[in-house]
Simulated scan of single mutants.
Amino acid sequence: MIDIEQLHKRYPGAARPALAGLDLRVPDGCVFGLLGPNGAGKTTLISILTTTLSADRGRVVIDGCDVATQAAAVRARVAYAPQELAFYPGLSVSENLELFAALTPGASAETVAAAIRIGDLSAHLDKRALSLSGGLKRRLNFCIALLGKPRLLCLDEPTAGVDPQSRNFLLDAVLRLRATGVTVLYSTHYMEEVERVCDRVAILDEGRLLACDTPDALRARPDERLESVFLRLTDTALRDG
């Protein structure tokens, strides 16, 4: 699904590159965890994958389409649910879905209905988004990203600030999407979520790939937690940036 070769990106004035020769392959139809401390390059990578940022050099191919030369084709295949809630709080749930469907290539009445089912939003369609609970806001944010029937869904901290029931619902929804053939790039700091839903995991730091394998293969011993693997590879220093 994703093939990345020698990807480089440095922001103007930055002391070090955000991405420093990253090589990565994401198989089709899996949930792929993206882990790294603050400043590891995760957000930069997702921005390049979603065509909102250009790389300095390197090659990225998504579902057979080159990000640099076939951006429109990539955007038709890729969707992104950001950590920041990306909808209009003054509109109702239904109005938000209809508005974003009108702006999303490939969206239709059928994909809106499917998103409502996936997010279990039918009882909340007339509510203003502003009045929704934190969990419902996350579900709406998630479902808006599904309107174009993406082949690749990029999720950035999709369960941030939600209650345990909503977190469980969203994780199950990710697994249901995988069962339909959607590839999910799952960026999070919650190690237990990665252990639950991810088929493979990449650990990044300072723009470089430190490790990439299944969660089980990354553990030095069967009883080791993924958090211990992460800290062992990235060290325990605080990252405030």
Rank of each mutant, 00 (worst) to 15 (best):
L170G: 06
A217C: 09
I116T: 08
D120Q: 15
L103P: 04
D156K: 10
S47C: 13
R219E: 00
R59N: 00
F100M: 03
R196M: 01
E98M: 13
V61Q: 12
F169E: 13
L91C: 01
R221Y: 15
V194D: 07
L22W: 01
V182R: 03
A14G: 05
F87D: 04
S122N: 14
L155H: 11
P37R: 01
Y80R: 11
D66H: 11
L121N: 09
F230S: 09
C143A: 14
S54E: 15
V229Y: 00
R10E: 04
A115G: 03
N168Y: 14
A109S: 14
G135E: 06
K137W: 11
I46E: 12
V60C: 03
Y190G: 06
Y88N: 02
A107V: 08
D63R: 13
N168A: 15
A202C: 00
C198F: 06
G148E: 04
T236K: 13
E195C: 02
I62N: 07
V61D: 11
T183A: 03
R10K: 15
A109I: 05
T50F: 14
Q83F: 09
G29F: 04
R219D: 03
L238S: 08
S54W: 13
A217L: 06
L233C: 01
A129C: 11
V201I: 00
T180S: 14
Q165V: 15
A217Q: 05
V26Y: 05
I116Q: 07
M1G: 05
R151L: 13
T180R: 14
R128A: 01
G161L: 11
E192W: 06
A220L: 14
A79G: 14
R10G: 00
Y88H: 10
R232P: 02
M191I: 06
A129L: 11
E5W: 07
S108Q: 11
G134M: 07
L49P: 09
L19G: 01
L7S: 03
L22A: 05
G134Q: 06
Y80F: 15
T159K: 09
G13P: 00
V67W: 10
V74H: 00
P158D: 09
V31K: 08
N168I: 13
E98I: 12
T52M: 15
L19I: 12
S133Y: 08
R138S: 12
L238C: 00
A79M: 05
G135H: 06
A109W: 11
D205E: 12
A18V: 05
A179H: 07
L103C: 05
G64T: 06
V194M: 00
M1V: 10
L132C: 08
C30K: 14
T188Q: 01
A20M: 00
G58C: 07
N38S: 13
D205T: 07
D56M: 10
R139Q: 02
N96H: 07
H8E: 12
L155M: 02
E193Y: 09
P17N: 07
V229E: 06
A160P: 08
I48M: 15
D172G: 13
E157H: 11
D63Q: 14
A115K: 08
E206H: 14
T188R: 00
S122C: 12
A68I: 01
H189Y: 04
C198K: 06
H8S: 10
A18M: 01
R178C: 10
L185T: 02
G39L: 09
T236H: 13
H8G: 02
